[in-house]
Nucleic acid binder design. Structure first.
Lengths: 196, 196
DNA sequence: ACAATAAAGTACCGATTGGTACTAAAGGAT
DNA sequence: ATCCTTTAGTACCAATCGGTACTTTATTGT
């Protein structure tokens, strides 16, 4: 069987996907126009449909890509700040975003939940699966922090995880609706208080 | 000056607006098609543009309508459950929604924040204004509960308000992303714990 | 009867959407 | 030189979008 026949690919699929993922993250699934995506990805329509099949397929892959990137990013944060510190740092980063830009992209998975639950119900199962991955990721950090004694083991890890998620997701939702620094500073303190 | 000249209106503007508001609440601004809205409102296109001007104007009025309805609704809850009880009841209602339907519409203002912050930036000021109205509404309840001794005055009212908002908004966002009963039950307990 | 207003109904508009079809050129392997 | 595949480019598609224009009919007060 012959290999490398024909004209070789001139773009990297994963790189193009990552660029698309960022664009979905910024604009949402529906609002991300195909022509905009193509421009960002740096490929032409014919290449796109041959490689990714459809906009919906691209979006599904973007959700996967986002989750993988997030896991890697959290591992990096853990190495720098520790398990508990990484969780606090997430809120700290949100605060910095609000202070410098007054807005935030939030979490692609949560954003997609809001967008898909009403109009793109067939994407809900995937969104839910990714949500559970994040839940698992966060709880892993909390369990680890509890084992290390960074966080009290008095409250069950799942409870801490759920409350933590509600605060950070609520925080970014509030920023999008118009909340400012004061609110996020309060919520940062609340996260620190929660993870005692 | 002659009054009541011409053919009288056969539909009530406020009723039609309220129906449109519910439709926006369920489907979001962009996803609510004009033809769907007309069907729900029970009026024809010509009547619509004469009365409301445009889809965007209708949406702005819907945000006003939603906020007014919410204020009225909260006053009702307060009469039944008291100031603190009303705040807890909001979370309780969300839990019931999850138990019976597995989903929630959330808050129209917060939903609009997520939708408009990216693509319909010119609506942000209005969304922000409505967000602050809700903030004021919640804080009024908390202040009242503190004065009555239902809630401890140890923590400042604004802090309690912010944390409360982050939890309920985070909760409905999580439900849309796929969270279930367990998570919301935990968050209901957390709200009760917060408002001590 | 007449004027004034609102309704229903129809037709149409330009713009945009995601997606398809097809041609032609490019580039590497055999 | 031949084959295979991926590019770029163009044209086109049906569907949908919010919105406009216009005619016709209905219902009131004067």
């Amino acid at each position: 069987m012959r290999k490398n026949i024909g004209r070789p690919k001139t773009f990297d699929k994963d790189e193009a996907l990552e660029k698309a993922m960022y664009f979905f993250w910024e604009h949402g699934y529906e609002s991300a126009g195909l022509s905009d995506l193509l421009e960002v990805m740096g490929i032409k329509k014919s290449s796109f449909y041959q490689t990714f099949g459809s906009k919906e397929e691209l979006f599904k892959l973007s959700l996967e890509c986002y989750t993988q990137n997030s896991v890697t990013y959290f591992e990096t944060l853990k190495k720098v700040h520790g398990a508990k510190g990484a969780l606090v740092e997430v809120m700290h980063i949100l605060l910095q975003e609000v202070k410098s830009h007054g807005e935030t992209k939030g979490c692609l998975v949560m954003n997609s939940g809001g967008e898909c639950s009403a109009k793109f119900g067939h994407l809900n199962p995937l969104v839910k699966a990714k949500f559970k991955e994040f839940q698992k990721l966060f709880m892993g950090f909390i369990v680890e922090a509890q084992e290390l004694g960074e966080i009290s083991s008095e409250t069950p890890a799942f409870v801490l995880t759920t409350v933590y998620q509600s605060i950070i997701n609520g925080a970014s939702a509030m920023v999008k609706a118009g909340a400012g620094e004061k609110e996020i500073e309060i919520l940062l303190e609340q996260v620190k208080l929660l993870l005692k």
